[in-house]
Design a protein around this nucleic acid. Structure first.
Length: 490
RNA sequence: GGGCCCGUAGCUCAGCGGUAGAGCUCCGGACUUUUAAUCCGGGAGUCGUGGGUUCGAAUCCCACCGGGCCCUCCA
């Protein structure tokens, strides 16, 4: 039978229900217990034969002639109903068999008991249609495998695959615990604009849109940084935001064009304070969410117990690629050295881009255990503060877990003159054709000129953190509705 | 943007130049403690779309649509 026929049949059943004067979509369900509460009640009083009403989706039907079993699932769990013709009556029993399908929501009222196999069961006295489903649920044996359907119709994925449901519950818990952690340390949660006339704070292409009333081009934010720093200037010493940011780039197992970022800024602190904070936050999180500071990613085990190693970027690149970028004062020589390690160096690349590429290709994939890379070259970090003893480096770290970058932090540059020069340099790069270079945000520079206290700023990619903590290999497994191409008429 | 792979029943898949198949779902029948219920019977298709080669195409070729993986982009 084709899909159209199945739907037509279900519509016929819907009409049959209506013709009996029954509303197949009543406004409310009179339930006394969730399925979980009903099972718990039975555990407490096994011989009580307590009468309960539960409600849920029918996920299995087993007909036995003049008796039938139906599995009922709600958000809390599952329980089965036992329907005997002699208990519910001949007419009701007929209605059950001829109008209830897999996927329908029904309410069941009756006494709790256990079958001889020990299964918690409600012996139905009556049942009510709560919502008739016109389309069938995914097939029960294999669940839902088709990756495209899983993402496009995530509700089917959630119905069919319990581990998917579990991942998103975990994601929610992680974010909840992060909020609790930040709040307990005295941080203030704030919200800053998503629509901006100047998208700065990161090296990425923005999405462009248009504000009709103001007749103005607008950008979707690519970072939270510049507005949060304005708040530090304004006197909020500890602020954070958990929000969606948007980067106009391709999709892959690591990248989704909209993703969730935590950024925090703390006045009078530097980046070393943040390394300890991140270690504490993530290891605590692992303990609370996973019940352990160990988890697996692919075939390797990840240990979140602090302290984590801190490796200067220069050492990490030198060890993994053999290139000591500080040994090359001449850009051409560095270019040649990088090319010899297999990096496809392009003539337009500057020193920063080459170093970054060495990091991405040779170092990043090996950083499975939580690892801080520290002391980045200044060219790679236009918003970070220079190290006093070596001004070509900045006080910055990036955190890698499972071979992916998870966090980025630095002591914030608060010298308005240095900041202006570095942003002007970015503007020159942009003018030279680098459309990912920072834009010079004059409004932000004026804010800095009013004085910003020394401060440390942190960004954590929440999606990648959830990946690390749930052992997911694709970012699409931790985003409920990941970006996909529009479906055509095919 | 480039390379490789995939698209057949509602679902999971087989078939790979000669009459479109299996299991589950679905429909009918038997069955009052089942739970991947079982047993008997029956349906179910634009073989992603369009074009080409061929006596004949799900099968071979081309283009397109959609997806996956890798690369690119993306600190």
């Amino acid at each position: 039978m084709g899909e159209d026929e199945i739907i037509a049949l279900r519509r016929q059943k819907l009409e049959r229900i209506r013709s009996k004067g029954i509303d197949p979509y009543p406004a409310r369900a009179a339930r006394t217990h969730t399925t979980k509460e009903a099972v718990e009640l039975l555990d407490r009083s096994p011989d009580g034969h307590d009468v309960v009403s539960v409600a849920g989706r029918v996920t299995a039907i087993r007909q036995m002639g003049r008796a039938s079993f139906m599995d009922l699932r709600d958000g809390s769990g599952r329980i089965q109903g036992y329907f005997k013709q002699e208990s519910v009556g001949v007419e009701s029993y007929e209605r059950l068999l001829h109008t209830v399908d897999l996927g329908d929501f029904v309410g069941v009222q009756g006494a709790l008991f256990r079958t001889k196999t020990g299964e918690p069961t409600i012996e139905a006295e009556s049942f009510t249609m709560l919502a008739k489903a016109l389309r069938p649920p995914p097939e029960k044996w294999h669940g839902l495998q088709d990756v495209e359907v899983r993402y496009r119709q995530r509700y089917l994925d959630l119905m069919a695959n319990p581990e998917v449901r579990e991942t998103f519950v975990t994601r929610s818990r992680i974010i909840q615990q992060i909020r609790r952690f930040m709040d307990s340390r005295g941080y203030l949660e704030v919200e800053t604009p998503i629509l901006q006339s100047n998208a700065g704070g990161a090296a990425a292409r923005p999405f462009v849109t248009y504000h009709n009333a103001l007749e103005r081009q607008q950008f979707l934010r690519i970072a939270l940084e510049l507005h949060l720093k304005r708040l530090v200037i304004g006197g909020f010493d500890k602020v954070y935001e958990i929000g969606r940011i948007f980067r106009n780039e391709g999709v892959s197992t690591k990248y989704n064009p909209e993703f969730t970022m935590l950024e925090s800024y703390e006045a009078y602190a530097d980046y070393t304070v943040l390394m300890e904070m991140v270690e504490e936050m993530i290891s605590t999180l692992a303990g609370e969410v996973l019940g352990s500071t160990l988890t697996t990613a692919g075939d390797s085990e990840i240990n979140f117990s602090p302290p984590w190693s801190r490796i200067p970027l220069r050492d990490a690149i030198r060890e993994r690629s053999g290139v000591d970028f500080d040994a090359y004062s001449d850009l051409e020589e560095l270019r040649r050295a990088a090319a010899e390690t297999g990096v496809p160096v392009e003539p337009s690349w500057g020193r920063a881009k080459i170093i970054d590429e060495l990091l991405t290709r040779h170092v990043e994939p090996h950083l499975l255990q939580p690892t801080f890379l520290i002391d980045y070259p200044v060219e790679l970090s236009p918003l970070a503060k220079r190290k006093t003893e070596s001004p070509h480096l900045v006080e910055r770290f990036e955190l890698f877990i499972g071979g992916r970058e998870v966090a980025n932090a630095y002591s914030e540059l608060n010298d308005p003159i240095d900041q202006r020069e570095r942003l002007l340099e970015q503007s020159r790069l942009r003018a030279a054709g680098d459309d990912e270079a920072e834009t010079a945000d004059e409004d932000f520079l004026i804010a800095l000129e009013h004085g910003m206290p020394p401060a440390a700023g942190l960004g954590i990619g929440i999606d990648r953190l959830v990946m690390a903590l749930t052992g997911s290999s694709s970012i699409r497994e931790v985003i409920l509705f990941p970006a996909l191409r529009e479906r055509g008429e095919a």
